[in-house]
């Protein structure tokens, strides 16, 4: 299972000549750390990193803001058409990407957003699954809590901030973790809405680099190693939460 990761790392530290040796060597005969320096000269890797971090952070911010507000509305306010609207949201979740990708492209084009950060961020500032998860959680909170808050004169905003959110840690962590992984790794959408190196996120930049470098495996593996390290670190840091929340999402069905 870990062999491909080992092979990536080991190739990234070889000289181009040694990488193409057959039979291959398991351990690089001399560590070429310079590959990691050279790859930054070949492609604007820092720029890709910055782009990915920016897109990941801003869409996460959007997902949390819209998700918390919508979930609170669905869980706590009574208004006509609430259930129908909620079912509508869930139905939208089932529609696969190709069905709305092309017209979304045209809409972004008309807005003049093609090849901008907005094209990668704004359409992904709502995550229906996040709304669903938070709504279920808020509905399970005891009514007494809300009554007490009202008696204390809390507005809805204060209730949300002081009472609801501190009790929503588990679903919020799940949403943060999954949204970060999804936006960090997303490929199809940014591939289509970007076309310059200044804007491209890491995955798209790496994919183009791999198409250009068909034989230079040492630099390619160095770039790939750098691209996977941040998420692997995140995974080790939040391993328990990731695996637990994923296991739960399977049980719910």
């Amino acid at each position: 299972m870990v062999l491909p990761f080992y092979w990536m790392l080991s190739t990234s530290l070889k000289t181009p000549l040694e990488a193409l040796k057959f039979p291959p060597t398991w351990w690089p005969s001399s560590m070429q750390f310079s590959n990691y320096r050279d790859v930054f000269q070949q492609i604007p890797l820092w720029r890709y990193f910055a782009n990915t971090v920016l897109v990941t952070a801003l869409s996460l911010f959007g997902v949390l803001a819209t998700g918390i507000m919508a979930a609170y509305a669905f869980a706590r306010f009574r208004f006509p058409g609430r259930e129908v609207l909620f079912m509508g949201f869930l139905a939208l979740m089932m529609i696969p990407l190709p069905v709305y990708l092309v017209p979304s492209y045209i809409i972004l084009y008309k807005l003049g957003w093609i090849d901008t950060y907005a094209a990668m961020i704004v359409p992904w500032t709502v995550n229906i699954f996040a709304i669903f998860l938070l709504r279920q959680h808020i509905r399970q909170l005891p009514q007494d809590l809300f009554d007490a808050a009202r008696i204390d004169g809390c507005s809805d905003w204060t209730t949300l901030r002081r009472v609801v959110l501190p009790l929503c840690k588990a679903p919020l962590v799940t949403i943060v973790v999954f949204n970060v992984i999804a936006s960090w790794n997303s490929f199809f959408w940014p591939l289509i809405v970007t076309n310059s190196d200044k804007i491209r996120p890491l995955q798209v930049g790496l994919a183009y680099f791999s198409r250009e470098q068909t034989t230079n495996y040492t630099l390619l593996m160095a770039a790939t190693t750098l691209a996977v390290i941040p998420l692997i670190l995140l995974f080790f840091a939040a391993q328990k939460q990731i695996i637990q929340s994923q296991a739960r999402s399977g049980l719910k069905e």
């Binding site: 299972m1 870990v2 491909p4 990761f5 092979w7 990536m8 190739t11 992984i181 960090w184 790794n185 490929f187 995955q203 798209v204 790496l206 994919a207 791999s210 495996y217 390619l220 593996m221 790939t224 691209a227 996977v228 998420l231 692997i232 995140l234 995974f235 080790f236 391993q239 990731i242 695996i243």
Partner: peptide, 22 residues
């Protein structure tokens, strides 16, 4: 569990690049 889960969090782009080489 960690070992089996590592490929899951790794992006499909990175995985594809490495496997093309393998």
């Amino acid at each position: 569990r960690t070992i089996y889960y590592l490929p899951v969090v790794t992006s499909i782009v990175a995985v594809s690049v490495v496997w093309r080489w393998i």
